[in-house]
Amino acid sequence: MLMTSPAVPGLPLPAFVRAQGGVRIEVERSLRGSAAMRVAESGGYRVRFPRSVLGLEGVLINTGGGMTGGDRLGIDVRVGEGAGATLTTQAAEKIYRSRGADVEVAIRLDLEAGSRLDWLPQEQILFDRARFARTLDVAMSPSASLTLMESTVFGRTAMGETLVDAAFRDRWRIRRGGRLVLAEDVRLEGDVAAALARPAIGAGARAMAVLLHVAPDAEARLDALRERLEGAASECGASAWNGLLVARFLHHDAAALRADLARVLQSFRGAPMPRSWQT
């Protein structure tokens, strides 16, 4: 992949110049299948729905080509009763170095009764001196089905970059039928490369991912998912409880992790990866 350097200004930009924006998408079931009935876009963020025979597939686009300290992004998705959609991103999201302020991303996913959402963004890449704070809030009906994959790469590994000073905070709250069923709180600050070298943390991992499936059939799919993980090059494992199915992945090589994720997801979903993944 071609990586271009961010336009690092000589002086920090005042916060009001930095990008603030987001995308709001409402998916409803119609006579011809699911459709994005309402879309609102702002601040350089777009969503496109390329023609697909596999149902509604949305591609989120950051026309700014990356994010830096002070940028704020909000993504708000509602999938209406009985509707279904797959959402991904056009490219890996690059989190550039910050001069102090955090990049703040807030994602809200609402899944109504009988709906389905496959949330499959490409990886986020933290550059050295990135400061990244994200929240992911899901509110779903007990009869809805969510498949979510999130992956993070620590440093531009192809260039041999490591994170000697960075901040990453990722807070997930998954509510199903109003009950909090899963909370994930990741906090990595300071010399991230040194932390990731430690055996209880990463043993040298440079990339991590979580696959989450929350659905009525989630626990019943554990054995099949474990079989799919057996051939993975990543260090990985899966577990299921309380209507959740969770798999976690670590790898020292971001490209190898991505290949594992694509292979596992393709087989888990019984559908090819969104086109933007196939590069």
Binding site: R169, G202, C236
Partner: peptide, 18 residues
């Protein structure tokens, strides 16, 4: 202030199940 990063300890608990 909640939060952590012991990813391989978490992975160990997943792997322990089998």
């Amino acid at each position: 202030d909640l939060g952590g990063s012991t990813f391989r300890s978490d992975l160990a608990s997943l792997r322990h199940e089998t």
